[in-house]
């Protein structure tokens, strides 16, 4: 009897300890699951907070006035919040930088993926990562002190702080994204394509330009889109080098003011929960929607490329 009882107790103990072990694991696994879902919560939260602090603006101003207004006079009376000059500023700087960064970045990606010897590839790739790591405020600083005076004298301008100055500095910041994702895309093209083309007597350049790059095109497109997303969202560099005049530019040698720079420059001087504060949050919401659309589309394109491309 006694023995039997102790046996039962033992087995209960075992069960208990096991269960408590399982119980703590159950908790850990739920926490892990929650943190996985948290990323979705965060992206939703960001949007919700942007909306929460921008919607009050529309008690006094209409959405059309915001999106089509050609004047940004936040502290005049009555204040006018027209996004058009800021959108134009962002567009000018972005287009300019993309015109520089896309050919350069895609060419560098082709070189790294198809032409460079492994030793060169392994030494250039970290340099590209370094380029990505340089803080945007440093690019702004260099642009302000080195590039701007040069632009000023070269084009004989009243100021070197122009859309073009911003475009050049931003191009450097878009390059790492464009290079690394394009290179991945080209490297993901099946080796068989290259062999088939060379075996048919095509030259290496013909193989690259007629087979490898076309096969990687959707990946390269996604890379360019992600580069655009990066440039539109860039803040400190443009704040420091584009001159910050909220005017619709007629030439790339004029100063412009981007949406990001407007937020960064003006938020510090607004009264919390004022009209101006709400207006700056609505710029943030617009920026969020634009970059979300770009990144979302780019990711869909990349995802499809990875599934079909090989």
């Amino acid at each position: 009897m006694a023995i039997e009882r102790s046996l039962t107790i033992d087995s209960i103990d075992v069960k208990k300890s096991r269960r408590s072990g399982r119980w703590s694991e159950w908790v850990i696994e739920r926490v892990i699951q929650a943190s996985g879902l948290l990323t979705i919560v965060f992206i939703v939260l960001i949007f919700v907070f942007l909306l929460k602090d921008s919607l009050p603006l529309f008690k006094t101003h209409s959405l059309t006035a915001l999106l089509t207004g050609r004047d940004w006079y936040p502290i005049s009376d009555p204040a006018r919040f027209g996004l058009v000059p800021l959108l134009a500023g962002s567009l000018a700087v972005t287009l300019g930088s993309i015109v520089i960064a896309v050919p350069l970045g895609v060419a560098a990606a082709i070189y790294l993926a198809e032409v460079a010897r492994p030793s060169i590839r392994e030494s250039v790739k970290p340099v590209v990562e370094m380029l990505a790591a340089i803080p945007s405020v440093v690019f702004g600083f260099i642009g302000l002190l080195i590039l701007a005076p040069y632009v000023k004298s070269l084009f004989d301008l009243p100021t070197g702080l122009t859309a073009m100055t911003g475009s050049i500095m931003l191009a450097f910041m878009a390059l790492p994204t464009i290079i690394s994702i394009s290179e991945d895309a080209i490297s993901a093209v099946p080796r068989e394509y290259r062999e088939a083309s060379l075996a048919l007597g095509a030259t290496q350049w013909q193989t690259i330009s007629r087979v490898m790059v076309p096969a990687a095109l959707s990946g390269i497109t996604a890379a360019v889109m992600l580069g655009i997303g990066r440039v539109i969202g860039e803040t400190m560099t443009v704040l420091m080098v584009t001159g910050n005049a909220a005017l619709i530019p007629h030439s790339i040698t004029q100063p412009v003011r981007t949406m990001t720079a407007t937020i960064a420059a003006e938020m510090g001087e607004t009264v919390q929960y004022s009209e101006h504060y709400f207006a700056l949050f609505s710029i943030g919401a617009v920026l969020f929607v634009i970059t979300f659309a770009i990144n979302f589309t780019a990711d869909i394109v990349l995802h499809r490329f990875r599934r079909v491309g090989r």
Binding site: Y193, A196, V211
Partner: peptide
């Protein structure tokens, strides 16, 4: 080649 490798 061993596996058919037409271009896309």
């Amino acid at each position: 080649f061993q596996r058919p490798n037409p271009f896309p």
